[in-house]
Design a protein around this nucleic acid. Structure first.
Length: 212
DNA sequence: CACCAGGCAAGTA
DNA sequence: TACTTGCATGGT
């Protein structure tokens, strides 16, 4: 194999198989989920999404028309609900103001432009922006999250104080620019993180990456 | 009971 | 610039 980043991918894919992350969801739902999941486990996010679906509220028009306080109430199970309601509103306001509420027009922007527009929204940082670009807009942006950092850090592939862009570049520089691959790789890292690299375990027992 | 979960922005010095 | 703190629910 040509480099370590590719070796790790091969190892994870062989071991865990395709993860099918965020499958069968609408791009809008994926975008909302990306904000709701900030520092929050996915089960709580699912409850929040279900609340919105329950009242047919999971659409641009419905959320944009909804008062922030009501939106906050609906997404309550996701935690930080006041904060996240405001962040969703910020995002919806951008799409309303610059794209007439047409998500497909927004997502049709060139990748780098889309990412910059997302980053300019208050409440959307690099991980949320890249998650939306990759999983909702289906454009190539490698997502770096807490698991990515922890896994690479424990295997001494990055320095302790490595920043987001630095870690992202490690992957982008070692891989072909491919949406499918970015999608699967990030999902596999989360799978590995959940199963073998929890925060509370300083050393990952029998980690699949140990032989590399 | 303490700690954790697919972050981000604002405040402090 | 470099830390620190607030935001909050539900599971282990």
């Amino acid at each position: 194999m040509s480099n370590k980043i590719q070796e790790i991918y091969q190892m994870l894919f062989d071991r865990f198989g395709p993860q099918h992350w965020w499958p069968g969801e609408t791009p809008f739902e994926v975008m909302v989920g990306a904000v709701l999941t900030q520092n929050t486990n996915w089960t709580n996010v699912s409850r929040a999404i279900a609340n919105l679906q329950q009242g047919d509220l999971l659409s641009f028009q419905a959320l944009h028309a909804m008062p922030p306080s009501l939106l906050a109430e609906k997404i309550r199970p996701a935690g930080y609900y006041n904060l996240k309601a405001a962040r969703l509103k910020n995002l919806l306001n951008l799409i309303a103001a610059e794209y007439q509420g047409r998500l497909s027009d927004f997502f049709a922007e060139e990748t780098a432009v889309l990412r910059q527009k997302l980053l300019a929204v208050k409440g959307v940082g690099p991980e949320t922006a890249d998650s939306i670009v990759l999983y909702a807009a289906h454009k190539p942006a490698f997502v770096v999250d807490a698991y990515t950092y922890r896994i690479l850090s424990r295997h001494s592939l990055i320095v302790e104080d490595a920043g987001y862009d630095e870690i992202q570049e490690l992957f982008v520089g070692a891989l072909p620019e491919d949406v499918r691959l970015y999608n699967e790789y990030h999902a596999l890292l989360v799978k590995l993180g959940k199963d073998f690299c929890r925060k509370s375990k300083p050393l990952c027992a029998s980690c699949p990456l140990d032989g590399l």
